[in-house]
Design a protein around this nucleic acid. Sequence first.
DNA 1: TTCGCTAGTTAACAGCGCGG
DNA 2: CCGCGCTGTTAACTAGCGAA
Length: 357
Amino acid sequence: MAKRDPNKTARNRMIGTLKEKLRELLPKVLADSGFENEQSLNAKIGSRNDDFFDLQNDVINSQEQFVSKWLEGLKESALNDGVVSDLSLWKKIKAKKSLKEYTILFLKRSYLKHFEELSKNRPPIESAELWIGQQNANYGLLVTPRFKDGKWENDKSEIRAFSNAYWTIGHVMKTGLVIPGKEKIFKFNDIEQYLLFFQDTLVRNSGSNHEYEIAGHYCDYVRASDTPELIPLLIPEFRYAGLATKHVYRLDFLIINPYTLDKVGFELSPWSTHGYLGKLQGLTQKAINEMAADNFAKEIRKHRAYFKQHEVFCLIYTDDDLKNPKKLFKEEILPFLQTEKPQNQLSFQILDEFFED
DNA sequence: TTCGCTAGTTAACAGCGCGG
DNA sequence: CCGCGCTGTTAACTAGCGAA
């Protein structure tokens, strides 16, 4: 099992303390508010979370933010939307001091219990799956894959509970790669097995030596790391039109930052495949320039399309850069692999708690 | 100092009942 | 169906202690 995380331990201790306080308050709250029992009361409060928050996407950074947003949500629903059950709850909370206190403590505890999920950026459902590879050999990388009605989809309620960093080595080790349309998952027993598959199947099939060599440097970097599971995937052959059969473009490599979810695309564009002009004999200089401009425009259109549809910024490398793939990897790609989990302000709240007693 | 053992702690997980 | 909280279980980890 994973090593214990001191932050988690501290959080659990706070959760334990809050639980004791809630249990102390409970008898009075039940008497004041008329709720039957603890379970019913807790369910009443807890069940509103889904309505007052966008649990899939809202990023919430503190207990206070959680509590105030919940209370605002209840007020809005009760007074503006006229939801009867919420109006009755709102009135009770306003009238009974004990219930108000209980609710606030309860919500603080709720937040702590779900801290990991609520405080991180998580991919919206529509970008929680991506497809890679060639036409007849493509694979899906999903966050919480589930096979339903002949198709792969994400279990959307589980995306936020996903415990690995998104789009990392740890991610693919957890989920594997799914085969489109079939209830089959390509699983990897260890990281080495994935790396071999990555370099020698996924990338080799693309046919570019440059890509193959860069993939090799990536593998070496992962092998040498103490925490390989936290390294972002170097996603090869990202199909920008998803599973649609006729995809216009593929991206050579894609990296998604696990914490900001920013996407960066890498395009290796030797002149011979992307800019080469055939049959120039007999053409005027003007015509040649027009052709070149047209090619250039096509490239630019492609990258603009990438960005607009998928919010992928593209970095393009041409012949000069490709002469030294090792340097290209080290200077251009590596920085995007060295990501660090941002510190949340809850750490400070925990520190405060320490010094209070 | 280093080991091996034990008892206590706790992260992770599954199963259940509640509300909507 | 979804999401929530509670509980009990399991297994990983840790601290403490005695023996070599």
